[in-house]
Nucleic acid binder design. Structure first.
Lengths: 394, 394
DNA sequence: ACGCATTATTGAAACGTTACAAACGGGGCT
DNA sequence: AGCCCCGTTTGTAACGTTTCAATAATGCGT
């Protein structure tokens, strides 16, 4: 067991990391000594402009980062002032078009890329979007799809996505506050929103750009992207009723999340309208472990008044239901039916096939990214809220 | 359809983002005007030290970020020089212990957090780990688990994880080069490593810290974390043989990835040793769409010389196999068996249950993070390579 | 030619931090 | 007493950018 300590200037508790090795393979110990010679196909020759500090690669433990082109090197090459170069690259109309072109050419030739740290220090803007992610509970593809969509929306804008772990048991507001107070990003995106989510309230107060995945019940409008879980639940109930099912069952997310409410409303309303009931167990939620969920369902399905229709809110729930159904010797489509919400192609791989509705999380991620960009651009999006409808597949 | 444009000073192609709304709900338009009054439970009172720029919140479109405590404010409060404060907070032994304590106290009182941008500008270190992620192909939990493990390893170290999208069809080396050249991070982590991965070669040349998920065949050692796919394949073959299976089938990842080779070696060697064959189709890989894979498998399973044992390299492959088996009227455990590699709890939810081995991707992520930290700390980890063994569950 | 209003460019300062070299004070030694 | 040296502390400069105010260059009318 080896350990390494990393300095922690943030004032957070430092900790010692340790490696548990299963096997260590020692490869042939060829000395890996190479000069800092960059591959020649790289960017462009550093130009004859007088780059300072020609070489100091000997002592420095950090690799000799071949001094990057900067505004100054461009200024030197073009004979202009640094200020002019800066403004030219920003396409400032105060700068003559010809000059702008000249500067741009020089910048391209040198392979100039602005230094993020310097920009950030000067302007206070980070060009970072913080994505709060629950790293414990989300299952299957949601993280992947959310990030994928977000990245799509941000591609080419200069913004990058940073993952901000949102562990359970932690104060979720504190996480957001840290981002705002220490300016860790220009905007925040998070999910698992609550009806009176303190994060939303705080971010609104601070005027800090954000988009939540899920609505709140604040009267103050704020940007959000949500899936119409109420519609999903309603349609699912109707579908099961159409199949002649009368005793429905649905497992909800933990009650503190907004979408748990929506699901409940949708299902209860639809069931009541048809004069049947939709059972919603208290003891168990979507965050309950698979093992427990299956055990509970097995028990429930072996009772005389067992449900004959199950609404799977998400893939794991649906699969758990199918497993329990199978374990009880029942057959979906025969004595019981399952309608599920899906976010990936996983049910294409499941047998028997069941009715599903799609929640396109990649689209959600993309929309959140786009909405956040607009919010950060200063657009008034307090009225801008996007509700995605379930895509019905039966 | 609405559109917004974001300035793009990076010189990358700018693009217009567009929003496709499914439904727009207009919430009640309560004016969301609040003062920048921060919640009082926040960090700490800003101290009586002379913070410059008392207020300029009127005109600025950006929210009035209540001027943060800085080294200077601490210096003012303690009557020390900025330099001293800086070194004291860095626990520099040149600074008297009493002074250090004094400074630390003042820093805590003011709620000081060092400005990342300034540190970064000055030191050239970003405190960011770039995680290259293929956002198209990875399936199910791998992204999630990898990020989760990585975050665990980095928690409390001051490093944060930034997602660097690694889209298919793009020049993967170019992505890494961009990170290094524009210093987007202090280290890189990536997966889907190739036997002679140009990224590894480049990063070694540059002396840039990285850890790859997967080995290479370079003679120069470099840090990597890998799963022993060869062992997995061997054990899977042996398991199927033990069940009396004689005609095995395994679908490989695209041939250019290292782990495709390892899987092949392991399976072929084990099969040859037992005098049977392990079929590896050319036409189809793990990156083939589920639909196509199932179709192919259905076709294959309906031929007279059909395989009687399938090795599922990953959850999707195994589920596709199970689906095809079911579609062909076969029963796992009866005429055919499946052994799969799993990375999530998903097979606990599958019926019938099959034999699986676990590739702990969260552990992989964690180990990669820890290894990267050590690499960045300057430790010579050129010899440090971690091979995780499959956890056998049968 | 002159002044005046634009237009185009520039210098200096600043963002918050760290690195370097220099200064300070005091004690121990000769 | 004088000297040197060590343990502490400090001033200055720099990282690369943007912004403000000020300057230089042009055009125009009179």
């Amino acid at each position: 067991m080896v350990s390494a300590e990393i300095p922690d200037p943030d004032g957070l508790a430092s900790r010692v990391v340790s490696l548990h090795f299963t096997v260590i393979i020692a490869a042939k110990a060829t000395e890996a000594k190479q000069g800092g010679k960059a591959l020649s196909e790289s960017a462009a020759p550093p130009s004859k402009a007088d780059a300072r500090s020609p070489g100091q690669d000997a002592a420095s433990s950090r690799p000799a980062v071949r001094s990057r082109p900067t505004l100054r090197t461009i200024a030197a090459e073009t004979g202009l002032a640094v200020t002019t170069v800066s403004r030219a690259l920003a396409e400032d109309p105060h700068i003559k078009a010809a000059t702008r072109a000249l500067v741009r050419a020089a910048a391209d030739r040198q392979g100039y890329v602005p230094d993020r740290a310097a920009q950030r220090l000067r302007t206070g803007r980070t060009r970072v979007v913080q994505l709060l992610l629950n790293l414990d509970h989300e299952f299957l593809g949601v993280t992947h799809e959310l990030i994928g969509g977000l990245s799509e929306a941000l591609a080419g804008t200069g913004y990058s996505v940073t993952i901000f772990p949102d562990l359970i048991g932690e104060d979720r507001l504190a996480r957001v506050r840290r981002i705002v107070e220490t300016r860790l990003g220009d905007g925040v995106i998070f999910n698992r929103t609550e009806p009176f989510d303190p994060r939303v309230r705080y971010l609104l107060e601070q005027g800090f750009p954000f988009v939540s995945h899920g609505r709140t019940e604040f009267t103050t409008p704020h940007p959000w992207v949500d899936f119409d879980n109420e519609a999903f639940a309603r349609i699912a109930v109707e579908r099961l009723i159409a199949k002649g099912r009368k005793r429905l069952l649905m497992i909800l997310p933990p009650a503190n999340f907004s979408f748990a409410q929506h699901l409940r409303w949708g299902a209860v309303a639809a069931a009541k309208g048809a004069g049947i009931i939709c059972e919603i167990p208290e003891a168990i939620t979507l965050d309950t472990s698979e093992r427990e969920t299956i055990a509970w369902l097995r028990h429930r399905l072996s009772q005389p008044d067992r449900p004959d229709g199950i609404i799977g809110v998400g893939e794991v729930a649906a699969m758990a239901a199918l497993a329990a159904i199978s374990d009880c010797g029942l057959t979906p489509g025969d004595q019981i039916d399952v309608v599920a919400k899906r976010a990936s192609a996983i049910f294409d791989l499941m047998r028997p096939r069941i009715d599903t509705m799609v929640e396109d999380l990649r689209l959600a991620g993309r929309t959140m990214g786009e909405t956040l960009l607009r919010t950060m651009a200063g657009e008034d999006v307090s009225q801008l809220q996007v509700l995605h409808q379930p895509l019905i597949e039966f």
